[in-house]
Design a binder for these strands. Structure first.
Length: 578
DNA sequence: TATACCGCGTT
DNA sequence: GACGTACGCGGTATAG
């Protein structure tokens, strides 16, 4: 038996919404039984009746976006147990290239059924604030029961495809991850708001200072944030010679890279660059960290499981995966703290996971040997490409090689590499030099060169590319007549297996760590994932044990020809442990 | 008000 | 004419 359910709530905020009703659908043979409490006051009664079923781990659960419903239930003290089948996740696994996986859309696409639209029954002016609060229970009942019925039908339609597309491993992994992400979102992260305000005022005063300096060269109220106004100022009024050509809006690019090249032409350019980076921090990141939930006093991000084409997770409202880490960024990461004085943060990241995956997928002998012998791969690359002894590789030469190694993962072209090298090393590299580096690179790592050709060939035949665990991404443009589209698809044929396999691996580790925490009834909490990094909030008496658990589960998530290494740090703030 | 585009933070 | 992956989001400009 499977229990299918769908909650209707007063809002999308899991920490402050109220449940208006629960639609339940149980499949008995081929007949469905659907119910929904029409009496608003009956909710608690209904939940009481349903609780044993929700918490019964022998009953499998089916739902659409269970991460939401299960958080709401948790808010009501119900911990859902048992195997989860999420139709949103299932559709994503089958069709990751489709950006949307909403229930109504799936109903139309897969069952050709037109569902009642939420907006047609909900009240509210702006579309963000629509609510079911105060709506006739009969209407909600009709709506909710249709939702839950369609969910089961979609499940029955999609589930067999998982097997026929050989996606069982990924299906199990991603659906088990639902429970992990539910807990992570629900836990939230602790923000030191006092410190945040200090950082903000510091930035504000620096911004005021810079604006004053800039004012000496400009008319009254110029808006530095406007690329159009900046064009007028730099190129028309200050007669700086522009670089490159005009974009489709008739402006020259005034991006960071361009401005850096213009820095020597006028002292205002440096000021603009400083202004930009500070303003970005204030307008984007400080603002984001202020979204602490007043009820829980935590910052709750949304961890999206169905938005990327590679299998990675993404984070939004706010995005906590792009909090700066360099220079000024460390100030921001200091604001992410342990939840109390009795807790610590543990930060852990996979060392070079994508390059290790590259070595594994390509079975390149030199790469594998280097990792087995603990040789620094960036240094090795530098020594071979630059034809100098391994011991003589300088830090900047290592940086250069690192950029090449990364470029490889992204499917570098000589032009892209020269941009990147000029950026990361600060000195100029011609396109010809870079083409030479690339040639040297593939000469050195012949297994990688061969693997690249194979992956492209396979994608051409299959129309898709896949990770080590069988996660697929279709590449319809791989045979396109448009060479730009075709070359782009070729890069994806190579990049997706690497990025996606790394994503699969950390997901496996997350599930296993979460299982340990549950089974051993530990109080530690996983609170963030940033692609190759995990962050935990840990009671001090569990620190030593958790360090062992986390490191072990990450390094042993899978067993492959190249070992995985997890570097771990414990401290008070995210800045300490990164 | 909605959409397009630029720019930029992370990996 | 562009020109290395994957994202989310803040800003201005413009269309309706």
């Amino acid at each position: 038996m499977k229990l299918v359910y769908d909650l209707e709530t007063t809002s999308l905020d899991v920490h402050s919404c109220e449940i208006l009703g629960v639609a339940i659908c149980i499949e008995v043979g081929t007949a469905y039984y659907i119910t929904f409490p029409e009496d608003e006051k009956g909710i608690l009664k209904i939940l009481k009746v349903l609780r044993p079923y929700f918490e019964d781990d022998t009953i499998e659960k089916v739902g659409h976006n269970l991460k939401f419903d299960n958080q709401v239930l948790k808010q009501y003290g119900i911990n859902v147990k048992g195997k989860l089948h999420d139709t949103m996740v299932t559709d994503y696994i089958l069709y990751p290239e489709r950006k949307k996986h909403g229930l109504k859309l799936l109903s139309k696409l897969h069952l050709n059924y037109k569902q009642i639209e939420f907006n047609s029954i909900a009240l509210g002016k702006s579309k963000e604030k629509k609510t079911l609060e105060g709506i006739d229970p009969k209407l909600i009942t009709e709506y909710a029961c249709e939702d839950v019925d369609q969910t089961l039908q979609i499940f029955n339609f999609l589930y067999p495809k998982i097997e026929s597309y050989k996606l069982e491993k990924i299906y199990t992994l991603d659906n088990r991850l639902v429970e992990v992400l539910t807990a992570m979102e629900y836990n939230g992260v602790t923000i030191d708001s006092q410190k945040l305000l200090k950082v903000e005022s510091e930035i504000e005063s620096r911004l005021v200072g810079i604006l004053e300096s800039i004012g000496k060269f400009t008319g009254a109220n110029i808006n530095i944030n406007s690329t159009k106004q900046l064009n007028k100022l730099l190129f028309d009024e200050l007669y700086i010679e522009p670089i490159g050509s005009k974009n489709k809006n008739g402006n020259y690019s005034v991006s960071k890279n361009v401005l850096k090249k213009l820095e020597t032409k006028h002292e205002i350019v440096k000021m603009i660059l400083d202004y930009r980076s500070l303003y970005k921090v204030k307008s984007t990141f400080i603002k984001a960290l202020k979204k602490v939930n007043p009820k829980t006093k935590k910052l709750h991000t949304s961890i999206n499981q169905t938005r990327t084409e590679t299998g990675r997770l993404s984070s939004s409202n706010p995005n906590l995966q792009n909090i700066p880490s360099k220079t000024i960024g460390s100030k921001l990461r200091e604001c992410f703290t342990a939840s109390s004085d009795q807790h610590s943060l543990i930060g852990v990241d996979y060392s070079n996971i994508e390059l290790r995956v590259m070595a594994i997928i390509s079975r390149d002998e030199k790469m594998i040997k280097a990792y087995r012998e603990g040789i620094d791969l960036h240094k090795l690359t530098a020594s071979k490409v630059l034809e100098i002894p391994y011991e003589d590789v300088s830090d900047s030469q290592r940086d250069m090689a690192k950029a090449i190694n990364f470029g490889l993962i992204y499917g570098m072209t000589s032009l892209g590499l020269s941009e990147s090298l000029t950026n990361t090393t600060g000195s100029e590299y011609t396109v010809e030099q870079c083409q030479n580096f690339i040639n040297q690179y593939f000469e050195l790592y012949q297994g990688v060169a061969k693997c690249k050709e194979e992956l492209i060939y396979k994608a051409t035949i299959n129309g898709y590319t896949e990770t080590l665990f069988g996660r697929k991404r279709s590449l319809l443009n791989i045979n396109s007549n448009d060479s730009y589209k075709r070359e782009s698809a070729k890069r994806l044929a190579m990049n997706t297996p690497i990025q996606g396999t790394a994503a699969d691996i950390i997901k496996i580790a997350m599930v296993n760590i979460h299982d340990r925490i549950q089974k051993e009834e530990l109080q530690s909490k996983m609170i963030l994932q940033v692609h190759d990094e995990l962050l935990f909030d840990v009671p001090k008496n569990e620190v030593v044990y958790m360090e062992k658990v986390i490191k072990h589960e990450m390094e042993n998530a899978v067993h492959l020809p190249v070992a995985l290494i997890a570097d771990l740090k414990t401290g008070k703030t995210w800045a300490d442990v990164h």
